[in-house]
Write a protein that binds this DNA or RNA. Structure first.
Lengths: 214, 214
DNA sequence: ATATAAGTTGTACGTTCGTTCCAGTTCCAG
DNA sequence: CTGGAACTGGAACGAACGTACAACTTATAT
């Protein structure tokens, strides 16, 4: 008997679709859901197993400890979310007006606060836990840095004269709007307030789609 | 035998300095510290008792359940923190330049990320938990609303032509900057980046201390 | 076919958890 | 002084926890 992590089938980019890999992926997905709606405080191996529809014993086979499982779940989340964020900003590059840009970001936040709410809550659970776990902190930092680099490129294309600062401001505003509206049900007037805040931010930063380079 | 919550000595504004009240306050303080450095996941009645230097049995006397304790700790935190935030913005009102305003906010964030880090982490623990507990969510909303009202008054005095939106932007930027730098040790260059972002935000929003009313 | 490895599952271990209880102590009104 | 109320603290409860393990089945390779 051996464990997957010790076996020769381990790769640089783990393939999660081979024999036992589907199960491993299902466990991580289940963990992300549990973290999202019960929090890390409510996360137990038994709760994950129940959510995944698997026996408790299965978890010990794929993950040495609960902490390992949490780390891998966070890595999975950042991999997936990075794509989503970049997609949101990619749609922005050819927009013509500041309002178009703001609209993309509004839709992004709106999605996070409604359909993807569980995932968003899980994300902030991880970020807070990162203050206590160096391994999670490394993932947080790498993710945040990747986001900022990409967003600053976008800001540069949109005519920013200080892309680094503007990307920091934009990412901060997004995070702040998300946090501030997580405890509240998202009604239309709230969405409108978010839109207004984003429009004003983008406009005042002087970002526009068809910007000539400075 | 009776419990304080059932007794006639209960008041609208609980006095925490009477006979057993000192202990109750000590328990809440201990809970805030434990939440800050072990998280809600690491919060146990025994950990609180140990942190407060009290026997486990004492907790059951002052708080019916752990959830009650958490709620009261959150209320204590918001009461205390509201004062601190308003003080930070109060020092801003008579400033002359956008840079002065930004400097106040930078100092505020810097303090939260260094000396008051434990308290800041606890705050975000509460905010995330608010997504799952309606009683905590009420506290979050009330607190957030109080902050926004006060900050929008300040923004108005600083010449904002849309104080509500500007206060939402400012509070979001602050929250975002805090969150984004919680997983990272706060070195001087990071502080400088925060200062730069705040300066640009304030400047671009057109806020200045000696503003004439529009 | 047979052996070896991979995957699977139910059970059980020792700990820690929130909460309850009660005998004992301190306080204050009468 | 005396009674009852407020307060104290240690012990104990059942429940839930993370993890380890051994018996078992399935797949793969020679």
């Amino acid at each position: 008997m051996s464990r997957p992590g010790e076996s020769a089938q381990q790769r640089d980019t783990p393939v999660l679709t081979e024999r036992g890999g589907v199960r491993k992926a299902a466990i991580l997905e289940a963990a992300l859901r549990v973290i999202g709606d019960k929090g890390l405080a409510g996360l137990s191996m038994r709760a994950i197993a129940a959510e995944a529809g698997l026996p408790l014993g299965a978890l010990g086979y794929y993950f040495k400890t609960k902490d390992d499982l949490i780390l891998e779940a966070f890595e999975l989340h950042t991999r997936r979310e990075a794509d989503r964020v970049l997609a949101a900003f990619a749609g922005v590059e050819n927009g013509d007006h500041a309002d178009d840009i703001a609209e993309h970001l509004t839709a992004f936040i709106h999605h996070g606060l409604t359909e993807a709410r569980t995932s968003l809550v899980a994300e902030y659970e991880f970020l807070i836990e990162s203050t206590r776990r160096p391994d999670l902190a490394r993932v947080s930092r790498a993710w945040r840095q990747a986001l900022q680099i990409q967003v600053s490129h976008v800001a540069s294309r949109l005519g920013s004269d200080d892309p680094e600062t503007d990307s920091e401001i934009i990412l901060s505003v997004i995070a702040g709007l998300e946090i501030d509206h997580l405890s509240t049900p998202l009604d239309p007037s709230t969405t409108q307030a978010i839109r207004t805040a984003l429009r004003r931010t983008i406009t005042r930063l002087g970002l526009r789609g068809n910007a000539a380079r400075l």
